[in-house]
Amino acid sequence: MQPRKLKTLLVDDHMLFLDGLESILQSYEELELLPSVTKGKEALEIISNNTVDFIITDLNLPDINGVDLILKIKKEKPQIPILVLSMNCDRRDVKSILNAESEGFILKISGKKELWKAINKIINGGTYYSSEITSIMIEILKNKSVNKHNINLTTREIEILDLICKEYSNKEISEKLFISISTIETHRSSMFCKTGSKNVVGLVRYAVENELVVW
């Protein structure tokens, strides 16, 4: 029996770009493309009334700011992973996306190979940020004034957290550490509880802010 395909919603205000993206993703066997939309309100309506497993969205939308859209989605359906595709990568945009806790962010100038890599990482429980985005994220997180937490993660949890920050998927972590994916999920749930994080992006922020990993 084949696994269920992930119902995927594409959001962008440029129809020509959407047509091209749909054409690229048609061959991605793990995804089932839902009808694409050009407005944030349309996306929210679909998400409220249908099963959506994965979202790829632009930041510049005609009716709702892309960051606000992500925040609304995460409030209503926090389990849905989101990949941002945008032309912009200035510090303000990256900081906003980091705070909104989107699972990925790559530039529209990226090639098909990087797009597929980002999608594969995210739908398998990981995160993916292009190198341009990552460098800005590190600068923002390391310059942020925070009160260090009392670290109460186990050695195994820190080991898994390090691999999460290096953008390993659950499958890749399982293969590297010789543990089951269900065990990884158990450790992740424990880390969510201990760090007060809602998702993988929150764990990455916690790790960098508390200097648990060299990223």
Rank of each mutant, 00 (worst) to 15 (best):
K5Y: 07
L6K: 15
L6C: 08
K7R: 15
T8M: 13
L10G: 09
V11P: 14
D12R: 05
D13P: 04
L16W: 10
L16G: 11
L18F: 07
D19A: 10
L21E: 01
S23P: 04
L25D: 06
L25S: 08
Y28V: 13
Y28T: 13
Y28S: 09
E30N: 11
E32M: 14
L33F: 08
L33V: 10
L34R: 12
P35E: 12
P35C: 11
S36N: 11
V37K: 09
T38P: 07
T38M: 14
K41E: 15
K41S: 15
A43F: 02
A43D: 08
A43Q: 05
I46Q: 11
N49Q: 13
N49Y: 08
N49P: 01
T51H: 14
V52R: 04
D53M: 04
F54N: 06
T57E: 07
T57N: 07
D58E: 02
L59W: 00
L61P: 06
L61S: 05
P62L: 00
D63I: 00
G66M: 04
I70A: 12
L71G: 00
I73S: 06
I80A: 09
P81W: 00
L83P: 09
L83V: 07
V84Y: 04
L85D: 00
C89M: 14
V94M: 02
K95N: 13
S96Y: 03
I97L: 07
L98P: 01
L98D: 03
N99Q: 13
N99Y: 10
E101L: 11
S102R: 01
F105R: 04
F105C: 03
I106K: 06
I106V: 06
I106C: 05
L107F: 00
K108C: 02
I109D: 11
S110R: 10
K113T: 12
I119D: 03
N120W: 09
T127L: 15
S130T: 05
S135E: 10
S135D: 06
E139C: 03
I140H: 02
L141A: 07
N143H: 07
N143D: 12
V146S: 10
N147W: 07
N150C: 09
I151V: 09
N152G: 09
L153F: 03
L153Y: 05
R156M: 13
R156A: 12
E157H: 04
E157T: 05
E159M: 11
E159H: 08
L161D: 01
D162R: 13
D162M: 07
D162L: 07
I164V: 12
I164L: 14
K166F: 00
Y168E: 05
Y168S: 04
Y168D: 02
S169H: 00
K171S: 12
L177C: 06
L177H: 00
F178C: 09
F192R: 12
K194G: 04
T195D: 05
S197Q: 04
K198I: 15
V200H: 11
V200C: 10
G202I: 06
Y206H: 06
V208H: 00
E209V: 06
E209A: 06
E209G: 01
N210W: 09
E211Y: 11
V214K: 12
V214F: 09
